[in-house]
């Protein structure tokens, strides 16, 4: 067994919490630059310029690119040959989030109870998804998620008879109804199949994929391209003020499902598509 002490985990999570808030991925920057060239609305083009300029300022000044530094969502791939020592694993992750959000001057947006609505003051607890995998390493990915785009997400249990058309209609309708609210240009994460909760999880995980990378199965890769084209013909445009750049990409993840079911979930992601990972 390889031993990893919790202090190493705390430091790693602290660091990626801050990096994610300051440093927009190159894939996102590149996609915005490319879409800007083809954007037909002058106002839309101006907005994309502001977004690119903002990413530059955030990186240079180590300032959050968006004031909503999100719910800290962490995906952990824990190697089965790793032994965690020095304390509670989840407490270590939360401590890393606590330190990162405090020392990085990130906004604390988490309420201890959804109805009492009192801020916990340190952006914990994080949402932590853990998977046990072969090997002796730990991979930790943070994907801080803003409220504006999360609020435009939805899951539906379709009837199998609704089929592929039902899925397309649901996705397009969800994006259309979202308008400018999720801060377009967006990335659309889609889960198809599994159970209710598995499907939502697929949609979320789809957002971690790099922009421009297609699903390995050609059928779903083609569906991603088709939906992206349809979404960008809706006219919503940057910030919903009209234009041809509504989504930068569409990512689909699928899972086997029950004979009675056809679940589909859409997780919307704003253009501040933040994620950073570390391998310990």
């Amino acid at each position: 067994m390889r031993q990893i002490i919790t202090d190493t985990i705390i430091q790693a999570v602290r660091k990626i919490s801050m990096e994610a808030a300051y440093d927009l991925g190159e894939d996102v920057v590149h996609a915005i630059e490319e879409f800007k060239k083809r954007e037909e609305s002058p106002v839309g083009k101006g907005i994309l310029d502001q977004v690119l300029e903002n990413a530059k300022i955030a990186r240079n000044e180590q300032a959050p690119m968006c004031q909503d530094t999100g719910f800290a969502v962490l995906f952990v791939e824990l190697g089965q040959e790793v032994q965690i020592t020095g304390g509670d694993f989840y407490a270590a992750i939360n401590e890393g989030v606590r330190q990162g959000y405090k020392d990085g001057y990130l906004r604390k947006s988490i309420l201890g109870d959804p109805l009492e609505r009192k801020n916990t003051g340190d952006n914990t607890p994080a949402v932590i998804h853990t998977e046990i995998v072969p090997g002796d390493k730990i991979k930790i990915t943070i994907a801080p998620k803003g409220g504006g785009s999360e609020n435009m997400s939805e899951i539906k249990m379709l009837k199998p008879s609704e089929g592929l058309q039902g899925i397309k209609d649901f996705v397009i309708d969800r994006v259309r109804r979202s308008g400018g609210n999720p801060c377009p240009p967006v990335i659309v994460g889609i889960g198809i199949g599994g159970t209710f909760e598995k499907c939502a999880m697929l949609a979320k995980k789809a957002l971690l994929r790099e922009i421009g990378h297609r699903h390995p199965n050609k059928f779903y890769a083609d569906l991603e391209v088709e939906l992206l084209g349809k979404i960008n013909r809706l006219g919503i445009g940057p910030q919903g003020l009209g234009g041809t750049t509504t989504a930068l990409d569409v990512h689909i993840e699928v899972h086997p499902c029950h004979i009675a079911s056809l679940p589909v979930a859409v997780n919307m992601q704003c253009h501040a598509a933040r994620h950073k990972e570390v391998i310990l």
Binding site: Q50, I57, P64, M65, Q239
Partner: peptide, 12 residues
């Protein structure tokens, strides 16, 4: 409207 997600720029 101000540009959502242009928070570092707007702060200037």
């Amino acid at each position: 409207v101000a540009v959502g997600g242009a928070a570092a720029l707007i702060a200037k």
